[in-house]
């Protein structure tokens, strides 16, 4: 059984591994590096649950062997909180998923988050159609995608806002991150934007 020595830089940390050439990148990430956020949902490359960002591009890590990633930089969901945009907390994309109810069972979520990151890295202000195109390689069985699209839009707005805040050294206050009941001035929250929701 032949093996190869490879180096993977995952979320900024460099790892040296000895792997069989047949080991899929997703297995190296999950089994060898114990980063189990990225998932496996199919055997044909259709579901995208294994999506990671490799050298700046979203790829399906079940359609790549670990040896092919030798020397590359990989980002997974586990690195999102350490991203500069996270500002010590959740990354705006993660926050978007939480605020816009962009997940249910959570299984496709890490892949969706990474696909979302690739979309925004390339195009900070995508249209809805561009977001739908950008996540069309990721299957979700729970959400119907509508709130995933909104989650990525949330992040796009938030990143814009952060940029403006940074630029203007101030800017408008952030919306309340806690729960609100859905009615303006009801629970003391600022009201939740029901775009596309009830009766709008």
């Amino acid at each position: 059984m032949s093996t190869k020595d490879i180096t993977l830089t995952v979320n900024g940390e460099t790892h040296s591994l000895t792997v069989e050439p047949r080991m899929l990148l997703i297995h190296a990430i999950r089994e060898e590096l114990d980063l189990t956020g990225s998932h496996i949902g199919c055997d044909t490359g259709n579901c995208g649950a294994c999506t990671v960002v490799k050298d700046g591009e979203a790829i399906k890590s079940c359609l790549t062997f670990a040896v092919q990633a030798d020397g590359s930089e990989i980002e997974t969901v586990e690195g999102m909180e350490d991203h500069p945009d996270a500002d010590g907390g959740l990354h705006p994309i993660q926050e978007g998923f939480e605020q816009e109810h962009g997940l249910q069972c959570g299984y496709c979520t890490p892949g969706m988050i990474m696909a979302g990151k690739a979309i925004l890295d390339e195009n900070p202000n995508p249209t809805e159609e561009e977001i739908r195109e950008g996540i069309s390689g990721n299957l979700c069985r729970c959400t119907g995608y509508q709130n995933i699209v909104k989650s990525i839009q949330y992040a796009s707005d938030k990143l814009d806002e952060n940029g403006e805040v940074a630029a203007a050294d101030g800017g408008r206050a952030e919306t309340d991150g806690g729960f609100t009941c859905g009615v303006e001035n009801c629970c003391g929250g600022t009201g939740f934007d029901h775009t596309g929701g009830d009766n709008e």
Binding site: T76, V77, E78, Q94, T109, I113, F179, T180, C181, G182
Partner: peptide
């Protein structure tokens, strides 16, 4: 009330 989900944090952070 539209409480944000208590389970979400572990899923969105891997």
């Amino acid at each position: 009330e539209e409480v944000r989900r208590k389970e979400d944090k572990r899923f969105i952070t891997g």
